[in-house]
């Protein structure tokens, strides 16, 4: 039902949609992240067991949740692209990939940093950290596959297939690793499983989660716009846009 949409209009419309949404995303991300982080780091009560070191969850947990979420979003975009042959879907998929990989990296880094005071080691083969590590590899795979093709249209489709294969695997990997972990190390390490969390600790976490999500949206928007411009640089509307931009800059120079 989407196929009748003219492909040129689609990229152009996607570009404009990004333009409209971007300021709101940046604003929301900045607001949520500063409120959530300040609240979480300075005002939320300390944990009775872990003291202040637990505060890293305000970074770690949103990053971890959204690293998985971004991967699923990529797979959804890939599916849309494959089913409806929508060029912009593949573009947005590949725009998301490095952002998701960054989130995964943040989750891994903060997890390791949290591990040092908690377990006395920078790296412990904890189930969740291991799944995150494998997720990072999956991101690398998709990005490497995309980079390997010269024809970016082909690249998008290929990377999309890989993202779908990966997303089928993510739950299998997650549960297999969790199961492997209980098998090998028993239940001694379960610090991540906080059974319940106090409301005054939870609120800043949720706000930060929203902030991270908006941040991912904003960065993806910028990357999608870049991708569209790079891919469509021969199209008239992009050249018009470039000419307009040059004109604007010229005017500013005159004003100065």
């Amino acid at each position: 039902m989407w196929k009748w949409l003219h492909p040129y209009a689609k990229t152009e419309r996607a570009y404009q949609l990004c333009n409209t949404l971007k300021p709101w995303f940046w604003l929301g991300a900045l607001g949520c992240l500063s409120i959530g982080t300040v609240w979480g780091l300075l005002f939320a009560p300390a944990d009775y067991q872990q003291g202040d070191s637990f505060r890293i969850i305000y970074i770690h947990v949103p990053a971890a949740i959204l690293s998985m979420g971004t991967y699923v979003a990529m797979a959804v975009a890939a599916l849309v692209g494959i089913v409806w042959q929508w060029r912009t879907a593949f573009m947005s998929m590949i725009a998301m990939a490095p952002v998701g990989a960054l989130m995964t990296f943040i989750a891994l880094f903060t997890g390791a940093a949290w591990g040092k005071p908690m377990w006395g080691a920078w790296w412990v083969w904890d189930a969740r950290l291991t799944s995150e590590l494998i997720l990072l590899f999956l991101y690398f795979g998709v990005m490497a596959l995309y980079a390997a093709f010269d024809d970016k249209q082909q690249a998008g489709k290929a990377a999309g297939v890989m993202a779908l294969v990966g997303v089928v695997n993510v739950p299998i990997i997650h549960y297999s690793v969790e199961w492997w972990n209980t098998l090998h190390q028993g239940a001694t390490i379960s610090k991540f499983d906080n059974p319940s969390i106090a409301a005054e600790m939870l609120w800043p976490l949720l706000i930060n989660l929203l902030g991270f999500a908006l941040f991912i949206g904003a960065v993806t928007g910028v990357r999608l716009q870049n991708e569209i411009i790079r891919r469509e640089r021969h199209r008239p509307w992009v050249q018009q846009l470039a000419a307009q931009n040059l004109d604007d800059k010229g005017e500013k120079h005159h004003a100065v």
Partner: peptide, 25 residues
């Protein structure tokens, strides 16, 4: 996916090894 690429073998390993982890476990 990689068959049209000239040097796909290393890429193949990068793509596949993470997927085979559950199998290994």
């Amino acid at each position: 996916l990689t068959t049209g690429l000239q040097r796909g073998s290393l890429l193949l390993a990068l793509l596949l090894i993470p997927i085979f982890i559950p199998l290994l476990i």
